[in-house]
């Protein structure tokens, strides 16, 4: 029976078990490639499927995706180098986060990964000096709106986004990994203390630090947009490093629930685990994508969108924030 593909499970399966694509028909390939593009996983998929038998047209599309990912990797590392030079006079550790960290450290999560902004973590006490050094080196504010600016500085875990005027690339400067308004307060100082130096003097989080950050970003912040990519990151990190000491690390940041959920969900999506309870609802949201690349399950999506605001701030503050945003819109 042929029925339209209306769920991203086939993408998760193709990533985890590349041999599962053998025997895919043309429509199946089309759906898989379209979904992978929509979830920004086409480069990752291309690396995973490299060398397997497939139609020539698919081979060409995936070869393009690999070339694009390789170019993206080079551009991301160059952007990190630009930030390193700009911040070399500031006496503080500069820790690469997310995609740039994965490619800089040569981790499997970085293979084929799409990388957008440069994300860095610096100690909060160094924030003013870092900001001044970046502004002096050609970065500029993206949205100079006074309310947003004050909001970011007072309540967020990062500076308002900056963009470089020549290279047109964004940088997010974090001082911790969750908004200050969130109910969970991770120990940013411990994450920075545990970070590891790369050859060029930039740093990455420790393996468990990366895992905790990925889990916090996915399940304690945001509406799970791009969730499949984040979960693939987590799966690769576990694959590369194992889970020694992960429980203790999660506990020290108050993120046991998020880390536990990450592990159960990757087992369900990429392994043989059977999801239970509320995890099933998370998976429903994470796989809400059809073979045309369209977002599906609008109510589930809306629920997670509402949840993301609920997680971010206490009710009275949320009401005030939405009121201000609504008046400005």
């Amino acid at each position: 029976m042929v029925r339209p593909v209306n769920d991203a499970h086939i993408l998760a399966r193709a990533l985890a078990d590349p041999a599962s694509i053998v025997g895919l028909d043309w429509d199946g390939w089309t759906a898989l490639l379209t979904m992978a593009r929509a979830e920004q996983l086409i480069g990752t998929l291309a690396m995973r499927l490299d060398g397997l038998p497939m139609p020539d047209s698919v081979k060409a599309i995936l070869a393009d995706a690999r070339a694009a990912a390789e170019h993206g990797r080079r551009a991301a590392l160059w952007e990190a180098e630009m930030a390193r030079r700009a911040l070399s006079a500031v006496d503080c550790p500069v820790i690469l986060l997310k995609g740039t960290a994965f490619v800089a450290a040569g981790l499997s999560a970085g293979q084929g990964r799409s990388i957008g902004d440069l994300d860095i973590l610096v100690p909060r006490v160094s924030l003013d000096a870092v900001e001044a050094a970046l502004l002096a080196a050609g970065w500029e504010w993206v949205k100079p709106d006074p309310y947003d600016d004050v909001y970011y500085r007072r309540w967020m875990h990062e500076l308002p986004p900056l963009i470089h005027r020549d290279r047109d690339r964004m940088i997010d400067v974090h001082h911790t990994i969750l908004p200050l308004t969130a109910r969970i307060t991770p120990d940013a100082a411990a994450l920075i203390d545990g970070s590891m130096a790369l050859e060029n003097g930039l740093r990455t989080l420790s393996p468990n630090g990366m895992l905790v950050h990925a889990a916090a970003h996915l399940f304690a912040d945001g509406d799970l947009a791009g969730g499949l990519r984040n979960l693939w990151d987590i799966r690769c990190l576990v694959d590369d490093f194992g889970m020694d000491g992960l429980d203790a690390e999660a506990q020290s940041h108050g993120l046991c629930q998020e880390v536990g959920r990450s592990l159960r969900v990757i087992d369900a999506l990429f392994g043989n685990g059977k999801p239970t309870g509320i995890d099933r609802f998370y998976i429903r949201r994470i796989t809400a994508r059809d073979g045309w690349g369209r977002p599906t399950r609008p109510l589930t999506r809306l629920a997670f969108y509402v949840r993301s605001h609920w997680l971010r701030m206490p009710p009275a503050m949320l009401a005030r924030h939405l009121w201000t945003k609504w008046r400005k819109a």
Binding site: W26, W29, T34, S57, I61, W292, G293, R294
Partner: peptide, 13 residues
């Protein structure tokens, strides 16, 4: 498209 697999998908919605 070659093999029936298009390079690009377009949606009018």
């Amino acid at each position: 498209p070659h093999d029936g697999v298009p390079d690009f998908t377009v949606r009018l919605f």
